[in-house]
Amino acid sequence: MLKNIIVTMKVTPKPEEIRFDPVTKTVDRSKATNEINPADKNALELALQLKERYGGKVILLSMGPPFWDQFLKMGIAMGADDAVLISDRALGGSDAFVTSKVLAAAIKKIGDYSLIITGEESEDGSTGQVPPGIAEWLGLPVVTYVSQVVDVAGDSIIVRRTIKGGYEVVKVKMPAVLSVELGVNTPRFPDFERLQWAQSEFKLTVWGIKDLGLTENEVGFKGSLTAVTELRELRPRERMRQFIEGSPEEIAKELVKRLGLK
């Protein structure tokens, strides 16, 4: 029987809808649609399947602005039992180091956990550093890029992990941190009735940094160990963009000639 299964969740803007202002050199996320970070949905699905097989309580944990509550409620509607949002103005500008520290502090406060399950990386920052970071703050083992849970045996969990050119199966002592590979399962749809309940009655827990025993100097820009000094747009270089017309045979001949494939 598993104890708490804590699933971290981030809300990310769709990358293709982000605009860059070359004059102010800032990123404009305001027009981009926000969504639950895709890999985090896979993490939640994996957690829910684990709960169905081995028991436990699935608790969502997020660090972000107050409006993220609607996304956490979506996670509740998918089947999570509870949700915690860490929201504090002081957290703005936090890098992966600070993020993992804050999440680890919240995980400690939630307590009584068997597993912390995360997505492999976020779609916006995609550092993949937060899961191993959380593990290190909590003194726990971590298995990254998990594609499948094979079994839970006593105080250990056996998982399959993606590696270059294949996979490995490892057994790890719980509590442990698992980061889940993007796309390894099909996240279930939110249950409509549960969503209505989540939106009208469910009370989400909101903590500030004081609740976690952290000070302003330890988080946000101040607590971060990296700083962004400049942003620029990466424009792909200009291409010829020459259309080749004709029958497939003519096009094939032309390509073979131009590219010297003979």
Binding site: I18, S126, L225, V228, L231, R232
Partner: peptide, 13 residues
Amino acid sequence: GFGGNIVATVVCT
């Protein structure tokens, strides 16, 4: 970052 559209210069502080 952001799907490869934007590049940030990052320094270690």
